[in-house]
Simulated assay, not measured.
Amino acid sequence: MARHSRHHLENFAVNSIDTGRLTVCVRELADRVDGRPLVLVHGNVSSSPFFFPLMAGLEHEAPRIRPIAVDLRGFGGTDTLPVDATRGLSDFADDVWSAVDALGLGQVDLLGWSMGGGVVLQMICDRPADVRTATLINPLSPYGFGGTVGVDGRLIAPDGAGSGAGTVNPDFVEGLRTGDDGTTSAASPLTVLRSFYVAPGWDGADEELYLASMLSTAVGEDNYPGDSTTSPSWPGVAPGRRGVLNTMAPTHLDLSAVTDVEPKPPLLWLRGELDQIVSDTSMFDLAHLGALGAVPGYPGADRVPAQPMVAQTRSVLDAYRSGGGVYTETVVAGAGHSPHIERTDEVLGALLMHLDA
């Protein structure tokens, strides 16, 4: 599948860290045991190898930085433990902090991609003084994924209908469960990687590595995607209380409290211009799909509008700035949901400027 590789896998060390909560898989540069720690937190249906190009760039361009990529529970090489979705993303945030503490890192820079961006925001809410800076790459909205309207994240239905585990394509889940590595299905993991994780024009480097990373996802009601309930509101499903997708349901997650933390670490918000996953017109938001005619029974945009995910993030970050914080928004032209693998050099440059500032 892959045309070529940007980096040499022997440059990466894989370690298992017993934190007392669970055993966490941590991937680092093999020869970088000192330096300023930068903790990288991956997104949903992925794991830390998605950061290998960025880590390889840091190896050559920033000898003072020690990148440490952490696999979240149920992904990659970390223990598969149940996810309590009623805590929002706090299970994941607590796990990452436990790894930081077990490694004795002290104050850290954080970088989170997609769902990992939400984990990073939760980590800032929990321990702001321990965060030197934070970088958010295509982060999910502070108000979760699906089921809200307006820049203030108001619920469309009281039960969060239109969000959570019940909104996922069951064929995609089955592809993860069976380890499907082909493209015969429009919902296969490889098809989703090529169609939505990246924008057209990506060179395909290390595609097999990223697919294997996706297929490492633990599947089930306690992990991905989670459980769901029926709803009287369109589209007829509401979030349950267990598993990954329910952690991002707006009935369980509200990260807008980050605006009140003290101290406020400087934030860099990096996003791909062509992102189809975290977007004001997301191809994974059932409301937007309903407006396109792809989900039956759509009641109309006046009743169930698409979630303005990017506008919600900007609103919360503007409030963060108004409260004395600093943030920079950088749009990566031509990139999709994964600019750190699509436009690695651009992301690396912006990240180093942020860390230096």
Rank of each mutant, 00 (worst) to 15 (best):
W113H: 14
D94Y: 10
Y197G: 04
V198H: 05
L215V: 04
D152V: 14
G88E: 05
N169P: 00
N138I: 07
T133E: 05
V192F: 14
A102R: 03
T217Q: 12
A129E: 15
D109N: 09
G166Q: 09
L110G: 05
G166N: 08
P200V: 02
V131D: 03
I124N: 02
W97F: 13
F145W: 15
P200G: 11
I156V: 12
E221N: 15
D152E: 15
A212P: 02
L89K: 12
V149M: 11
Q122F: 00
L121C: 12
L209P: 05
P158D: 13
S195Q: 09
G182Q: 10
M123I: 05
S98E: 08
V131Q: 03
V173N: 06
T148K: 00
M214S: 07
G201D: 00
V149A: 15
T178C: 13
N169Q: 12
G146S: 04
E208R: 14
T178K: 14
V151C: 11
T217L: 11
G175V: 09
V149S: 14
W97A: 07
V173C: 12
G201T: 10
L193G: 08
F145C: 12
G153M: 11
D206K: 06
V96F: 04
F92N: 10
G104W: 10
G164S: 10
T184I: 00
G147S: 06
V151P: 03
G162F: 02
S114M: 03
V198E: 05
P189L: 07
D126P: 11
G147V: 00
F196I: 01
F92M: 15
L190S: 08
L193Y: 08
V108A: 01
F145V: 15
D203C: 03
L155I: 01
G153N: 10
G175K: 02
S90E: 13
G160Y: 07
T183Q: 14
W97Y: 13
S213H: 05
G160D: 11
G182S: 15
L140Q: 13
G144W: 02
M123E: 04
L89T: 15
V192L: 01
A129V: 04
G153V: 06
G162N: 08
M115P: 03
R127K: 08
Y210T: 12
G182H: 12
A205R: 11
L215Q: 08
L190N: 03
L111K: 03
G204Q: 07
A102M: 05
V173A: 13
P200M: 09
D91A: 13
L103S: 07
T133I: 06
G144T: 10
A199R: 00
L110V: 06
G147A: 01
P200A: 07
R127P: 01
G147N: 03
